[in-house]
Structure formats: C-alpha cells, structure tokens
Amino acid sequence: MTSKATIPGDAQSPVGASLLAKASSQAISSLNDTAQSRADSRLQVSGPTLDFADISLTLGRTTILDHVTFQVRPGSVHALVGPNGGGKSSLIKTLLGQMPHQGRLSLQWPGEPGTIGYVPQALEFDRGLPMTVDDFMAAMCQRRPAFLGLSKHYAKAIGDALERVGMQDKRKRRMGALSGGERQRVLLAQGLIPAPQLLVLDEPMSALDEAGIRVFERLLDDWRAAGITVLWIEHDLEAVGRLADHVTGLNRRVLFDATPRQALTPDRLLSLFSTHPRSAA
C-alpha cells in the first residue's frame, strides 16, 4: 500500500509547515560508476518518491524557477547542483512549504507517510549565549523546554545522534565555542531526530573539515542502505560525482537530470554555470 501527498502551488502543506516550524525555531573528478546499481540493489525502501511537476516561482519581475520538472527516486541520494542564485534553495523552500509557487509537488510514500528531516546550510545564533550542545539538541528535538534539560524520552536518541556525528564528547561545550565544522555536525545530528524517511540537506559539507566529511560520507552510506530518500544541495561536484546516485542541474530551469557520469560533463557544467541558462541538454 502506498500513500501520496500533493503540495499544490497555492497552499502550504502540513508537512512543509511542520518543517518550517522546526527550522524557524533554530534562531538560527572521480565518478562512482556503481551508484545506480547500489540504489537498485536495496531490498527495502522506506523513503518516498518526490515529483516536482512544472514548478514555477516569480518574485516581482524576477523568475526564480521556470517550469522545473524532475523526479527523485525513492531511497536514492539525489544531488541538486547549480550556481548561486539558480533557484536551488528556493526549490527546497517549496518542498518545506515556505514559498508560494505554481505547479504540483507530490510525495509518494511506500506506506504510511513518514518523517521528513531538514539540515539547513548554516546555524545563525548569538555566540555569546550560554547554550551547550545538549541545550541546542533539547530545543530542537523535544517539546520539553530546553532549560529543564533532556527528557528521558529523547535522551538516548540525542546521544545516539551525537555519537553518529562524532560529537558525543562535546555535549557540554557551548555552541559558540565550537568550530564551524563542529556546529555543522550538530546540525546533522538534529536532522536525525526523529529518524527520517526523507532527508533534505542544504549544502551540509560547506563548513566540514576532513574528519567531518568522513562522517558525512558514512552517514550517506547508512541512509542509502536504510532506503532513505535524500535530496542534497551541494557545490562540491567531485563529492557529488562520488556519492550521488542521480544529479539534477538547476539554473532557474532544469538543464540536465541524469547519473553523475552522464551529468557532470564539461559541456553540461559550462551550460549550467553560465550567466544565462541555455536550452536543456
């Protein structure tokens, strides 16, 4: 039995609204030939199919998204690449229910609708606040006020998530004292609670150091093995070539949608990063 949810262009989805509530509470070239075969070899898929159908967005006289159409396969790691200002983050905001748009966006779940996790690009907060890693995780992941500490219900899940990103030993450190890469790891940890079936990542590698990148790559392998659908905005094309199952190039409109080997060619990348998008390849 499958379940389908459609996000119309003139309405905010309940799923998107719940993600927005979570996000706003923050105050805050080696290509892998076996990527597609890895995706096809999974026996169980928990994540949904995403269908972006003719999505358009205009702000004032500026066209942000121009009839964007592509599909994210269930249980795949799907990368979204393109220049700054090309509409990647705006497209994510349509999924999160933050942007009015034209067109149709639907999620087809393999069973009952699951959980959507979101990891933003950066964490904005007052670094002078005496907020520890535990405090931040409590504020993000539980209903109980953070000043009361971790609830027993979430304590194990938060500990496990911090262990997965290598931040277990820094739980009592102030968030403002962490490096940019360490804060990014904490952001990755909060995206794991509750365990998602669809995970939306907005440039998660942007502030990571080498150790953090290894953590992220291990997480990607875990998500793929668990059949989680991952929609991943990324500027590091070498990493996309190694780690993604599928790549969509977006510069206001879709310029290519293919496997990494087919997508990340010099001609297609030149077209993608040109000031004025050319015809779709």
Results as ranks from 00 to 15, higher is better:
D160C: 05
S3V: 13
R164T: 13
M1Q: 11
M167S: 01
K93H: 11
A189F: 03
S24K: 11
A244P: 00
A155E: 10
F147H: 15
L57N: 04
A244G: 02
S18R: 10
S29L: 14
V240L: 00
L162D: 01
L95Q: 04
V247H: 06
A177N: 13
L188N: 07
I213T: 14
L162M: 06
L150R: 11
V200C: 03
R73A: 12
L50V: 09
V215G: 02
R214G: 12
R171V: 06
S3P: 09
A122R: 15
S13C: 03
L220S: 08
A5R: 15
V240F: 00
Q26R: 15
A161Y: 06
D33Y: 10
R183E: 05
G128L: 02
M131F: 11
A39K: 11
I116P: 11
L243S: 03
A225Y: 03
R261Y: 09
L65M: 10
K156V: 14
L19W: 02
L201E: 05
R253P: 00
L162N: 04
E203Q: 12
A17V: 09
T132C: 07
L65N: 10
S271Y: 01
P113R: 08
G9E: 05
R242Q: 13
G60A: 09
D51A: 15
D267N: 09
S25K: 13
D202L: 07
Y154Q: 15
D222Q: 15
D221A: 13
F70G: 09
D40Y: 09
I55N: 00
A139M: 08
M131G: 09
Q190A: 11
R224A: 14
Q121M: 00
S24R: 15
R143F: 08
S37K: 13
G212R: 08
T58K: 13
P83H: 03
P48F: 01
P120E: 02
A35T: 03
D134Y: 08
V68M: 04
R261N: 11
F256V: 06
F273Q: 03
G117T: 04
G180L: 04
M99L: 12
N84T: 08
F125Q: 07
K93C: 01
A244W: 00
H101K: 14
A21H: 09
L270S: 15
D135K: 06
G111F: 01
G97H: 02
K172L: 12
R164E: 07
T62W: 10
E238R: 14
A244L: 01
T34L: 12
R253I: 03
G249V: 02
Q190P: 05
V45A: 11
C141V: 09
S179P: 04
L272I: 05
L269P: 00
A155Q: 11
F52I: 12
E182W: 01
A23C: 13
K156I: 13
D257Q: 05
S206V: 10
L20R: 15
A161E: 06
R144S: 09
S13W: 04
P74M: 07
S89P: 02
R171K: 08
A138K: 06
R42Q: 11
Q26L: 15
G111E: 06
P83I: 05
A155W: 00
E234P: 07
L199Q: 05
D222N: 13
R127Q: 06
R218V: 02
G181D: 02
L123R: 09
R143T: 12
L201K: 10
L219R: 03
V215C: 06
P266R: 08
A161S: 11
V119E: 02
K156R: 14
